[in-house]
Design a binder for these strands. Structure first.
Length: 294
DNA sequence: AACTAGATCAACCGCGCATTA
DNA sequence: ATAATGCGCGGTTGATCTAGT
């Protein structure tokens, strides 16, 4: 049976008084009380009948308070377990099955920007859960990136900075490596695919971003740093792209990287970077950019 | 056929933030 | 202002599956 009695000697979770620890020790260690009374509650894999009960209840009543849901639905589970089961597996809009090439590419690009913010990455992939993406990353991408000499955490090329994993000096250099890693990964995948079916969308995307880059919006985007006013470059870019004045700090670094690059200098890696940046915003933003394209 | 090692992924946990009392 | 509570997140675990020997 999976997830049996916790190992009291090694698991931090055993600090719970319910797991057998004296209440005093529990309090001294300042450990938060468990989310629910675990005695008598079922753990481990969900049975079909449990799934049916949960689906039936949520379909009729919505989930409401997760804490009170199990009792109301007739489940011997804690609310946390119910929420996890629903959000990661039972939700009707969950997309099962292997990730598409485009989804994989997007995950890599978003990870280069967002890091291990799985929920934020999942928000950009409809039907995919943070857990699924996290598993995908840890089981596939991490090893693959490492095998081609890229640090999966920072997206930096080990080979650029010698054999050690020390960080490169400047933010712009770091981002060059970051974007390069995304490009290398995408290209490595594409090279394994012999069909022209996959090549065509790439060209289309490149043309699209080249058009955006050369458009009025792209010009503003490139010249942002030259504009002297109260907004930071990233703020201006955000206003331009999405209307928000609260950009992620990583975008500020990204803008710095873009600044000074001419269209002829920005090859595929920068298109990939630009694509990542724009993909982070919703599709309405893309409509705005397309409307301003030549 | 039996064993082993590595890969996969559902489910767990503690923590931090936001909200409520 | 503070404590309690609820929820969601990221990291980790371990049962099961698969491929290799």
């Amino acid at each position: 049976m999976r997830y049996g009695v916790p190992n009291l000697t090694s698991s931090p979770a055993c600090n719970s008084p319910i797991a057998g620890f004296p209440i005093q020790i529990y309090r001294e260690k300042m450990v938060r009380a468990p989310c629910c009374e675990k005695t008598g509650l079922k753990r481990g894999p969900w049975a079909q009948e449990e799934d049916d009960l949960l689906i039936d209840y949520i379909n009729k009543n919505g989930h409401g308070s997760w804490r009170s849901l199990p009792k109301l639905a007739g489940l011997l589970r804690c609310g946390k377990s119910c929420r996890l089961r629903w959000t990661n597996y039972l939700r009707p809009d969950i997309k099962r099955g292997p990730f598409t090439l485009e989804e994989e590419k997007l995950v890599i690009q978003l990870h280069a920007i967002l890091g291990n913010r799985w929920a934020a990455i999942a928000a950009q992939l409809p039907g995919r859960t943070d857990n699924e993406i996290k598993n995908l990353w840890n089981t596939h991408f991490r090893k693959r990136l490492m095998s081609i000499g890229i640090d999966p955490q920072t997206h930096e090329l080990y080979s650029l900075y010698g054999s050690s994993k020390r960080l490169p000096a400047s933010p712009s250099t770091r981002h060059m490596a970051q974007w390069e890693s995304a490009r290398l990964e995408a290209e490595a995948r594409l090279s394994m695919e012999s069909s022209s079916i996959l090549a065509s969308p790439k060209i289309t995307n490149t043309d699209h971003f080249l058009r955006v880059w050369q458009s009025e919006a792209g010009e503003c985007f490139r010249n942002i740093k030259r504009k002297p006013d109260c907004f930071s470059p990233a703020s201006q870019a955000s206003v331009l792209i999405s209307g928000t004045t609260e950009p992620d700090s990583r975008f500020e670094e990204a803008i710095t990287f873009y600044h000074g690059s001419s269209p002829s200098e920005v090859e595929d890696s920068s298109y990939t970077a630009l694509e990542s940046f724009f993909d982070f915003h919703d599709h309405n933003d893309m409509s705005f950019l397309e409307a301003h394209s030549n």
